[in-house]
Design a protein around this nucleic acid. Structure first.
Lengths: 234, 234
DNA sequence: CCAAAGCAAGAGCACTGCTCTCTAATTTGT
DNA sequence: ACAAATTAGAGAGCAGTGCTCTTGCTTTGG
């Protein structure tokens, strides 16, 4: 007797998982560019052509790994998150979780936030998992800005009219309840966070920054300040 | 009659240049991962093995392209730089030059600031050209902080002792004449600048930021503020 | 002027992604 | 329960890759 879905279907999801596991191992060991379908199949004791029943191309395998990586990072950040703490602490915690995950999974981080594989465009399916960390940060800012004591990040004085229009275009779909300048600062901080992590990960800080842990904590704190999570202490 | 170095030597540098040119064309057209030694040789009408007389491996060709890219970016930033303007304007100009170069040369930007090629570690020769933009930014900050009116970026209050030690370790070799907290802010701004550019370039801002030009200018302005290039206007 | 060094060419190895055909097993419809 | 349809795996094969080695030829330097 077989289960509702039949033995074949179950074998399929098992093999699919095994392929992804082995592919992830090779990814972690060698990097995305050296991930080889044939090597994965070889390691799994199957012939390479059989693998194409599960993933129609190498790019499809990579897409699956990308989605998993986004989810892994998102889950890591969500787990680390302490919703009860104050906004500043929450912000730092999430940022450090992102950095920690990146240091633990450098090749997967490179896969999702490094240069995209040429000719490869991420399908729509990657969007929701990719947004998880961003949503977390938005949530922190949202909670924080219930407190009227907090500073609003100022728009640069120079080109305020343009900047205000830009910020207004930016805000609505993303976080309608937050002031436009906060959303702007948030998006910038989001990108800058990945700049910090990427530079550390890809070796740009070698021989420049020694105590990277402290440096990152400090920089993340400044980002929080930019988003207006820190009360102005004059 | 041949020149001092002989015809053979001249042919060598010509062929070397032709190889790099063709490689750069393929890089721009297809990206680093699809750059093929054989294709370069084919396009140049020579056989692939002949190419190894000029570049002992594909990685060496890539290294040459990386150095050229760093130099191209550095020169672009230095050309755009207006040493006579005020620090804020100088900062913005250099940042926008970096962004512009990145948008014009996406694959070359990905090559130098994206995920490193697996197993590839940049040789020492890449360090000086890679530092050009950084030195430019340091110079701007140095000039700016001759003005005592400018704000010093504050260290985060939370962990000031650690942060001060970190900043002190960071400063000496980089810019001994600048206050440690400025150097810290500078290094962070440097990384964050590349986070902003990378996110735009690699599509992370799709459907999020529409007016990217204005957004970037604003964010770069905030970076300048973080480095203390803007007088505090209370 | 002749040996030494530098060069292009070709063949070849081990590898890659991917397609095709063929066989065997399993699921499904009647 | 049995035939039909679907599906998994195996193998051969194609076009491409980086790279090495050997073979002649040309330029160079003593």
């Amino acid at each position: 007797m077989s289960t509702a879905q039949g033995a074949r279907a179950r074998a399929r999801i098992e093999v699919t998982a095994a392929i992804k596991d082995e592919a992830r191992r090779q990814l972690a060991a060698e990097g995305a560019a050296r991930l080889s379908l044939r090597a994965v199949a070889r390691e799994l004791g199957m012939v390479s052509s059989a693998l194409y029943r599960y993933f129609p191309s190498r790019d499809d395998l990579l897409t699956a790994l990308i989605i998993d990586a986004y989810d892994s990072l998102g889950e890591c950040a969500e787990t680390a998150h302490e919703p009860a703490a104050d906004p500043f602490r929450r912000w730092i915690t999430v940022c450090e979780a992102v950095r920690g995950w990146a240091l633990d999974h450098p090749h997967e981080y490179a896969l999702i936030y490094g240069s995209p594989v040429p000719g490869y465009t991420a399908p729509e399916a990657t969007v929701p998992p990719a947004a998880r960390v961003g949503l977390l940060l938005i949530g922190i800012a949202r909670d924080a800005h219930r407190d009227p004591e907090l500073a609003r990040p100022p728009l640069a004085d120079e080109l305020r009219p343009e900047a205000e229009r830009m910020a207004a275009d930016l805000a609505p779909d993303l976080a309608p309840d937050l002031p436009p300048e906060v959303v702007t600062a948030l998006v910038a901080a989001w990108a800058q966070l990945y700049g910090l992590v990427g530079f550390e990960l890809f070796g740009q800080f070698n021989r420049v920054v020694e105590d990277r842990e402290t440096f990152f904590r400090h920089a993340a704190g400044q980002l929080a300040r930019g988003v207006g999570l820190v009360p102005t202490t004059p």
